[in-house]
Design a protein around this nucleic acid. Structure first.
Lengths: 203, 203
DNA sequence: AGAATAAAGGCGAATGTTCGTTCTTGATAA
DNA sequence: TTATCAAGAACGAACATTCGCCTTTATTCT
């Protein structure tokens, strides 16, 4: 069916990416073959290669999707929750991971699984590494903004450096992603309770 | 040189594993070929396959080393530091990651890089997943023990659940591992300052 | 003690498979 | 008729692994 609409092309591309993402989430980038992806997509080799120049292209595209998904989801959290308390903010973030990220609305997969693959891939692909660096710096910036609001509300020491607090918050989220996938029985509310208790510890 | 001592065999095995670990840390498990490992080890294909039945065996062995390295290093931290304050404990843990783990004494590599690969691999290998689950539960147990000591010293609310606090501490460490490798300019002391400030935030 | 033998270690070319990718051919909408 | 797209067989490269041969050490026999 030649001479196809722009929409058609975009949809096909998205279909292929979704098929690849499903397999990547299960077996990782490098234990998934192009034959697997071609099969899962229901198209032919020739068709897939019309939409993606190479496997690396496909990996980069899926990694990009996973990273921007995190960006969007945490960004919108900041936009909505005007001035959340520390506890509210933590709760919202953890539930976003356990909710929208664990069941991605568009891809229908657990994007945090792809996230773990992206972290590993960033160690060998400068392109993925650059995107990851950019996205995580932006996330840290979002969290730093939250910290600033806490300072304004007197919930956080005025002398604290917001970017540093943002890094710690980001770290707590990344740690939850790891444990949720790797440690059996990890529960969002248990984790949140632990964070809260730790926040109230004194030296 | 047939009929060789037990020590000799163990040394050779360790050499091969170290060669593999060096490459895995750079390119990951599945973008490193057996030919690469054979070359790096300085031995022949036949020799390497005498010590490891398959590539998967080699991956499992290296993953195991990385995981037990984390276990040992955090376990000994608990043994030494009798009753550290929250701040002291966090500082010690972060510096262990930035020190002994970033420059593994035996392997001479950054084991946290292998750690990221292990996380990704755990998603597809039940064997690696089981080991990761076991090790992280033990680490969480170590940290829970620290939390109990804080409770005894009145530094942590008596109603807090030590295992939950341990999970949060573990999460902070895993998050630091991610950021140190992926976010340019991540600094241990900045991260610690962020954790401290966050710990002093109030709802 | 010294020669012969047995067994283990090491080597590297060879093997069969799987990989990512390409190319030819046929079909379809403009 | 022409340009676009899909199909899938075909291709060379790279892959993990094996196998036959040679070397070296430990043991046995004379």
């Amino acid at each position: 069916m030649p001479r196809v609409s722009e929409q058609y092309r975009a949809d096909r591309r998205a279909e292929i990416m979704a098929a690849a993402a499903r397999l990547f989430a299960i077996n990782g980038f490098h234990s998934t073959s192009m034959a697997d992806i071609i099969g899962e997509s229901g198209l032919s080799a020739g068709a897939v290669y019309r939409y993606f120049r190479s496997k690396e292209d496909l990996i980069t595209a899926v990694a990009e999707t996973a990273l921007s998904s995190a960006d969007e989801v945490f960004g919108s959290l900041l936009a909505e929750g005007a001035t959340p308390s520390p506890e509210q903010a933590m709760t919202a973030m953890i539930h976003v991971i356990d909710g929208e990220m664990a069941h991605h609305p568009a891809l229908g997969i657990d994007v945090t699984r792809v996230g773990l693959q992206v972290w590993a891939e960033a160690l060998r692909s400068p392109q993925v590494a650059a995107r990851a660096d950019g996205v995580y710096k932006r996330l840290r910036g979002y969290f730093a903004e939250v910290a600033r609001r806490w300072q304004a509300a007197g919930q956080l020491d005025a002398g604290a450096v917001p970017e540093q607090v943002g890094a710690a918050m980001l770290g707590l989220m990344q740690g939850f992603i790891v444990q949720r996938l790797l440690v059996d029985g990890t529960d969002p509310d248990d984790y949140l309770a632990g964070v809260k208790a730790l926040r109230q510890s004194i030296d």
